[in-house]
Simulated assay, not measured.
Amino acid sequence: MFFAVALLLPAMAAADPLVGVWKTEPDRKNLISHIKITACGDKFCGKILSAYDATGKEVQTPNIGKKLFWDVSSEGSGKYGGGEFWVPLIDVDAVPQMTLQGDTLKVKGCEHVLCAHQTWSRLQS
């Protein structure tokens, strides 16, 4: 029985509504990123796929292809947390908190008492 349950956990994570491609809000450099969220075992991770300037033109940055967060777990009821979140603009790791509501993902990262947040939009499931 345990073996069957262990085999189902990664499949359940892969079918989670968090999985997909998400568009960020503009950052302090006015760049928008596309983030691919995938199941990483029974948890979730996100990678920076691409970046765009204010006109929508794709730009190259050294962060493309890097992991943005990892080891995030579903906490139920559209809430996700745990793991680590890398904040590229200030090169710091933070504790992520995410809330999924339909095609909107509210993302918050805190390092000690300092927190930053964004609302991301789903581009693709």
Rank of each mutant, 00 (worst) to 15 (best):
A14G: 07
K57E: 11
K79W: 05
H112G: 14
V19G: 11
F85I: 06
A51Y: 07
F44Q: 03
H117R: 13
F69G: 05
K66A: 03
S74C: 04
L123K: 08
H117L: 09
I64S: 09
V72Y: 05
G46L: 05
V72R: 03
A4W: 12
D71T: 06
E25N: 10
I90G: 05
A54S: 13
W22K: 00
L68R: 06
G102Y: 04
S50F: 07
P62G: 05
F44W: 05
A94E: 11
G82P: 02
G56H: 05
G41P: 06
L49E: 15
N63D: 15
L105I: 00
W120D: 05
V5R: 14
S74Y: 01
K57A: 09
D91Y: 13
I32V: 15
K36R: 15
D53E: 01
L9M: 12
T38I: 14
K79A: 11
K79R: 14
G41R: 04
T119G: 03
F69W: 07
R28H: 13
G76K: 01
V19A: 07
E25P: 08
L100R: 05
W22Y: 04
W70K: 11
D42F: 09
H112D: 15
L123T: 02
K108C: 06
T38N: 11
F3L: 14
V95K: 14
N63E: 15
K108E: 12
T61S: 03
A11C: 09
D27C: 08
Y80G: 03
K57R: 10
K57C: 00
F2H: 12
T61N: 05
T38D: 14
A39M: 01
E75N: 11
A94V: 03
L89W: 10
G20C: 09
A13K: 06
K29W: 07
E58V: 07
V92H: 14
R122C: 00
A4S: 14
G109N: 02
E58L: 04
A39V: 00
P62M: 04
T55L: 06
H34K: 04
T55W: 08
S33R: 14
E111L: 15
A6Q: 12
I48T: 08
D103Y: 06
D42K: 11
T61M: 07
N63A: 13
V87I: 14
G102M: 06
